[in-house]
Simulated scan of single mutants.
Amino acid sequence: CLSCLLVLIAWKRMNKAGKLPPGPTPIPFLGNLLQVRTDATFQSFMKVSEKYGPLFTVYMGLWPVVVLCGHEAVKEALIDQADEFSGRGKLASIEQNFQGHGVALANGERWRILRRLSLTIFWDFRMGKRSIEERIQDEASYLLEEFRKTKGAPIDPTFLLSCSVSNIIGSVVFGSCFDYEDKQFLNLLRLINESFIEMSTPWAQSSCLFPQLYDMYSGIMQYLPGRHNRVYYLIEELKDFIASRVKINEASFDPQNPRDFIDCFLIKMHQ
């Protein structure tokens, strides 16, 4: 009786989603996970689109997901109807870290304010004393020197290119570049890379596929042992690093002479 009741609740939950594009028939609790493999999501979606067209609905567990396939469908949604599709979905695996804050994860008016502020700051840097273009040129020269040190030997350039791009971003955000062997810089790269890797693991994907379960029990699950906690602690380390850099800026803060993104953000916040 309990199993039948749970199946009935799940079925009603799926049928309350309103008018959605057509798609494969979901199974209670599992949804369309039999048709959409988490280890081959793109290929699965393309196969479904062959039958249902460029716009279709699949259920990831109990949650309906509307999928857009193809250039025209994506262009119509993200460009022609940008305001309607500008919202950000919640990722249960990192929601406990950010709680809707940040340019990438905020929604509504908060997102619009942060986006406008960020664009204004980057525009000021483009026109300021030391433009982003100059920072890129300096970093490119440093990167060439690192390549010359190899004396033409075969290398994997991934590490050097990652350092170069990260340093450009770091110079804008933190106001200074790092040496490629700097321990603090290498630790920052490690945290970023491992965070993306953890969010791509099957567990992280499953936490996004079942956000109700994760949200309901996140207060308990974060204290339980397991791989699912790793991304939380990695992002917390990143937040601690950024907080430490903000404190450094505050100690020598001059509102008349902003040095980086953090300074500009502090100026806008104090206004």
Rank of each mutant, 00 (worst) to 15 (best):
K129D: 05
V67M: 06
H101L: 15
F125W: 10
H71S: 06
E76C: 04
R135D: 09
V74W: 04
S93R: 04
D80R: 10
R148S: 15
D138V: 11
S93N: 07
G128I: 11
I113H: 12
S131E: 03
V66F: 05
P64G: 04
I132G: 15
H71G: 03
V58N: 07
I136H: 10
V74N: 05
A104R: 11
I136G: 12
C69T: 05
E134T: 15
G128T: 10
Y52I: 00
S131F: 09
L143S: 14
A82D: 08
V66K: 05
T57C: 05
R130E: 11
S93I: 07
V58K: 01
A106H: 01
D124A: 13
E139M: 11
S118I: 05
L91E: 06
R130H: 14
L119Y: 10
G128K: 14
L119G: 10
P54A: 05
F85D: 05
I113D: 13
E109D: 07
S118M: 10
W111V: 00
G89A: 04
M60R: 11
W63E: 15
A82C: 01
N107M: 00
M127P: 03
L62R: 01
G128D: 12
G61A: 02
D83W: 00
P54V: 06
I136M: 13
S141F: 05
F56N: 04
L143Y: 11
E84N: 11
F56G: 12
Y52K: 08
L105W: 13
V65P: 06
I94T: 01
G70K: 08
Y59C: 00
K90F: 06
D80E: 09
N97S: 07
K129V: 14
L144A: 13
F125Y: 14
R112L: 09
I136C: 14
V58Y: 00
L144F: 10
A106N: 03
L144T: 14
G100A: 07
F122R: 09
V103H: 07
S49Q: 06
G108V: 02
D83E: 01
D80A: 05
D80Y: 10
Q81H: 12
G108N: 00
Q137E: 15
P64C: 09
G108K: 06
G128F: 14
A106T: 03
E145V: 13
D83A: 02
T57P: 01
D80T: 13
L117P: 05
E133L: 12
E72D: 02
I79V: 09
S141E: 12
S86L: 04
S118P: 08
D124C: 11
N97I: 02
G108Y: 04
S131P: 08
E84V: 08
G70A: 04
F85T: 01
E95M: 08
I136T: 08
D80M: 03
Y142R: 11
V103D: 00
A73K: 02
W111D: 01
E139P: 12
R112V: 02
L144I: 15
E133S: 12
L91W: 09
V48C: 05
E146R: 13
N97R: 03
A104D: 03
A82Q: 00
I79N: 03
G102R: 11
E146D: 07
F122D: 08
